[in-house]
């Protein structure tokens, strides 16, 4: 989004950041999340899940503001974002590490 002028409190406002999690095997590839993500963070990946659908991947995860829309619009309970608290980075291990793996695309 482009501001037509700089807000007065622009220096104090912190844009939140989110981390995207995908339940790959639950996705049915409807692409609702890709289409409606307000920050265009997502794309359908080229890989297939076991059901033969293309789950989404976060191609611009640094733009994610953790608005939660993907979680709400996903009909398959297959995606959600978590707010990254101040000081945390995406490199840091998220709390659900044991079940977290990296997708290889």
């Amino acid at each position: 989004m482009k501001y037509w002028r700089k807000p007065l409190d622009a220096d104090t406002i912190k844009v939140p950041h989110g981390k995207i999690y995908v339940v790959r095997e639950q996705c049915k590839g409807c692409s609702f999340c890709v289409e409606y993500c307000p920050k265009d963070v997502l794309e359908l990946s080229q890989e297939f899940n076991k059901k033969g659908y293309h789950p989404p991947i976060a191609v611009r995860e640094e733009d994610c503001v953790s608005c939660g829309l993907c979680e709400l619009i996903c009909p398959d309970f297959a995606i959600y974002a978590e707010l990254i608290e101040e000081g945390e980075t995406t490199e840091e291990t998220p709390k659900k590490t044991d079940k977290t793996e990296k997708a290889e695309v």
Partner: peptide
């Protein structure tokens, strides 16, 4: 940019 966290359903 292509590394998205893949999680199990119960998370």
């Amino acid at each position: 940019h292509l590394e998205t966290a893949i999680v199990e359903q119960d998370t």
